[in-house]
């Protein structure tokens, strides 16, 4: 986010200069620059509105009383504010256990994915070895791999292995889904830690493990935490594999999806909003690392 674009160069000039003191053509240019800037702001705000408005609307319904949820025309703000609909959703049968399942699955995925991907990410960032490019390429290929094709055979296999409909089998599947992304992100995090620091640590008598633990790790930790959070969100959101791999131990998205045609609107609205909450919170924490994460895949 360091490069500036084009239309903005005139902006710092505007500070103290009065328009009417300037020659005509400069005045015009300044006005045009200001207009352009105002246009950019308008576009920026419109896009923000496009993203936020639907969230506001479903939030409104989630926090209106059930009676208000059913009224038509709908109100544009949750007045009077009520947690009744939300409580109804949370107390609907299966929702709390499914939420617990979802959290457990996401935490297991986070742990497994981070533990497995960290060494691989480090290897890609720090070593040049034969097959490195091939490994990177296959991870990229796998990253875009359809979940759909994995979920069907895995569900069948899990059945024969007797681990069908278990929380940890969903976590195994989710780890497979998130692993490629996590490896790429972690490798970019490690790559951003200057190699010189590690070398210096070794010069001062650290062995490679100590150098890694005392120098690289503390510097890489925030980035890895961001990637872990993102892994959590990916697992929390995943629905296709979860609905195929479970019957009774549904995760939250699987439960909601499965009950869509059997449940009324308040359930859907509250459920939809409830599922949004983690993304609202977590994206806030990882926003600085987004380009680290996703920018990677273009390189």
């Amino acid at each position: 986010m360091t490069t500036t674009s084009s239309t903005t160069q005139a902006a710092p000039l505007v500070t103290k200069v009065r328009l009417r003191d300037l020659p005509v053509e400069q005045r015009r240019a300044l006005l045009a620059a200001r207009l352009r800037r105002a246009g950019t702001y308008t576009v920026a705000l419109l896009i923000a509105l496009w993203i936020l408005l639907p969230i506001w609307l479903i939030g409104t319904l989630a926090f209106s009383a059930p009676l208000d949820v059913r009224t038509y025309p709908k109100q544009a703000a949750p007045i009077p504010f009520s947690t009744e609909t939300m409580e109804f959703f949370l107390n609907a049968r299966g929702v709390l256990p499914a939420t617990r399942n979802s959290i457990v699955v996401a935490l297991m995925t986070l742990a497994l994915s981070t533990v497995i991907s960290a060494p691989a990410g480090y290897a890609i960032a720090r070593y040049f070895f034969r097959g490195r490019d091939l490994f990177r390429l296959s991870i990229l290929a796998v990253r875009a791999f359809p979940i759909v094709i994995l979920a069907v055979p895995l569900a069948v296999t899990f059945r024969t292995w007797g681990i069908y409909d278990r929380v940890y089998s969903v976590a195994l599947m989710h780890t497979a889904l998130t692993l490629p992304t996590t490896i790429l992100v972690v490798s970019s995090v490690f790559a951003s830690v200057p190699r010189e620091l590690e070398e210096a640590a070794k010069v001062f008598g650290c062995n490679p493990l100590q150098a890694f633990l005392r120098v690289v790790m503390p510097l890489a930790l925030p980035g890895i935490a961001a990637s872990a959070i993102f892994t959590f969100v990916m697992s929390w959101n995943e629905v296709f594999a979860a609905v195929l791999l479970t019957l009774e131990n549904r995760t939250l998205p699987a439960l909601i999806l499965y009950n869509l045609d059997k449940s009324g609107d308040p359930f859907k609205f509250a459920g939809g909003f409830f599922m949004l909450i983690p993304s609202l919170i977590f994206i806030f924490f990882v926003r600085r690392y987004l380009f680290n994460m996703w920018g990677q895949i273009t390189k």
């Binding site: 923000a48 993203i51 929390w236 994206i283 987004l290």
Partner: peptide, 17 residues
């Protein structure tokens, strides 16, 4: 931040929205 919010929104939640 606002533009990035949808990154964390699941397809199911988006559909419900």
């Amino acid at each position: 931040y606002i533009y990035a919010i949808p990154l964390g929104i699941s397809d199911l939640a988006a559909g419900l929205v």
